[in-house]
């Protein structure tokens, strides 16, 4: 399964893409496939602050419920409200239109400590 090289990953299957001081977070295709049909995504409010490895939300599928984690610290500047009405976007396009939140990072060096695509693929065994 292809994993984009332009971002960093957590072992819990969240991807992080850094543009300026904004990090966009979503989950990988592997995670979306494992969850099966996604029915609900619970996301934080704009303005919420998180530290690295905090739980920022929850994702539910027909099969299971999972927590969502951020690998970097920062303040939520945007959430993907499209997922309220159409959570299945996470199944069909998890790396682009299925994004979840955007954080203004408080400590950009945290991003570099996250796994790159190769390390993530090795860790998740696919």
């Amino acid at each position: 399964m292809s994993v984009p090289n332009d971002r960093r990953y957590l072992k819990s299957h969240e991807w992080h893409r850094l543009e300026g001081d904004i990090v966009t977070i979503g989950i990988t295709q592997f995670a979306a496939d494992e969850l099966t049909d996604i029915t609900y995504v619970s996301l934080p409010k704009v303005g919420t602050r998180f530290s690295a490895n905090d739980r920022f939300g929850e994702i539910e599928s027909v099969k299971a419920t999972s927590d969502l984690y951020t690998g970097v610290s920062g303040e939520v500047v945007a959430v993907n409200s499209e997922l309220n009405s159409n959570p299945a976007v996470v199944n069909t396009d998890p790396f682009e239109s299925g994004w979840m939140i955007k954080l203004r990072v408080s400590n950009p060096s945290e991003f570099d400590t996250l796994m790159d695509a190769g390390a993530y693929q090795a860790s998740s065994g696919h």
Binding site: T39, Y40, S42, E60, V62, T65, P87
Partner: peptide
């Protein structure tokens, strides 16, 4: 029947 979209396991 639950209110909302959350699933009870």
């Amino acid at each position: 029947e639950l209110e909302g979209k959350r699933i009870a396991r």
